[in-house]
Design a protein around this nucleic acid. Structure first.
Lengths: 239, 239
DNA sequence: CTGATGACCAGAATAGCATTTCAGTCATCA
DNA sequence: TGATGACTGAAATGCTATTCTGGTCATCAG
């Protein structure tokens, strides 16, 4: 059907992931079959299993690849302007970039229509865990540079930060129809909330951000690599 | 089976609601039948329908009655100490008292095991809506008395407050098992978060609370009556 | 006459079974 | 040597017969 084309290992993985993503969004997790994905990607079914151990891992990879793209966009903003490493800015971007990507939006809003069975699959966990939000190390860098409220320790956020973000991602279907803000407005509200709740009352001097940014960015880059590895299977570093 | 006893209309409603609540918690919404509830309450099946229009309304009444009890506890604390009307204290009590009551906990944590079908029933809405949390009027009283951060208008909380509370109620199953705080600790975190995010930086003088408390309490009393009426059917004011 | 009841009914839920679908494997091939 | 797709069993689905149960209302007890 699709004519075979000479491709690298990673290009082929991308074609398969593209097919999986498109079918996922069109039909939902339950209805998509490996046969159809392989057909669409122009490869044999066995080939899919040369990249990922199972169907579950394949769909995790679909999410992981979008996570890589999302983190890339967020980190790019931080490189442009070190002030964007502030927790409230980070989470604002995180929220906007996640909601702008259909697969990630489905995951974070726990969209049962799209994900059905995948919601309760253990493979989904790493995509929704607190680590993807803001790891201890990232928060440690903020704390060390006076970018968190005095007396607030990174571990104090282990519970609260995921709770808040989960709330903003998931509240919509529970709200009466009268309340509907734009995505931007919601992102601004998260940012405002987090800034007042967790950051110093008076904005820290720019120097602090400039000092902290490289370390903060390095941490996110490392996380990004973790997700990239997950997306393309262990074979990503063979190349 | 249960010997009939002379009772007022409301006593009988309570017996039926008791039976419904016990069976709900033991078996979950789907498995409980009206026949079993009536048998347990020692009344005929038809009698149940003299109180509520439908099965759905009956279970809504079970929740509404617990909401009355919960609001009663919260308001009692406010009568003892006017400072408890502060948004963060209100929500702290709300969280603790809701989580301490099995039916409300099931509703607010969206426990699919207990509620299954009831989760998507429209009758559940009024129990989970923003209004039960903190109505515009309540927030208006706080704002009028300088108990909200300068520049924060009550309607600014329409989205954010439900999002945050929903997050705290629902996050637990999504967190890695390492993170498990006591109920008290979680309540303290909600309170801290809300105080920093939405209330004045320096604690307002007591006089403000003393002035505002009667009006705040009156609003909650009115909401409580609404739920009481819903719990016992329209017949509650016949008496 | 009034308020309570439970036999009754239609539609929905369930159980049981026959059939189809599909994730994952591996012998074969280019 | 890397890619394939025919093959297999387990799980999902469709179908039918049967049971269950929400809600009604004719009847009855006090």
């Amino acid at each position: 059907m699709t004519e075979p084309q000479p491709t690298s290992h990673i290009d082929r993985a991308d074609r398969i992931l593209d097919a999986a993503r498109d079918l996922l969004l069109r039909w939902g997790y339950r209805r998509v079959t490996i046969d159809e994905i392989a057909r669409r990607a122009g490869v044999g079914k066995g080939t899919v299993y040369l990249h990922w151990r199972s169907r579950e891992q394949l769909f995790f990879a679909v999410g992981a690849r979008e996570a890589v793209a999302m983190l890339g966009a967020v980190v790019a903003a931080m490189r442009d302007d070190p002030r964007q490493i502030a927790l409230h800015q980070y989470m604002r971007h995180f929220f906007l970039e996640a909601m702008a990507r259909p697969v990630l939006r489905a995951i974070f809003t726990r969209d049962a229509e799209v994900l059905d069975r995948f919601l309760s699959s253990p493979a989904r966990r790493p995509l929704q865990s607190g680590k993807l939000l803001a790891s201890r190390e990232y928060l440690g860098v903020l704390a060390d540079n006076g970018l968190l409220r005095a007396g607030l320790r990174p571990e104090d956020l282990d519970y609260t930060l995921p709770a808040v973000m989960f709330g903003f991602f998931g509240i919509d279907p529970l709200l009466p129809s009268g309340v509907d803000l734009t995505l931007q407005a919601k992102a601004d509200q998260v940012a405002d909330l987090l800034r007042h709740a967790f950051e110093p009352a008076k904005p820290p001097p720019s120097a602090r951000f400039i000092t902290a940014a490289p370390r903060a960015i390095a941490i996110l880059d490392r996380h990004t690599d973790d997700y990239r590895r997950a997306a393309y299977g262990a074979s990503v570093d063979e190349r």
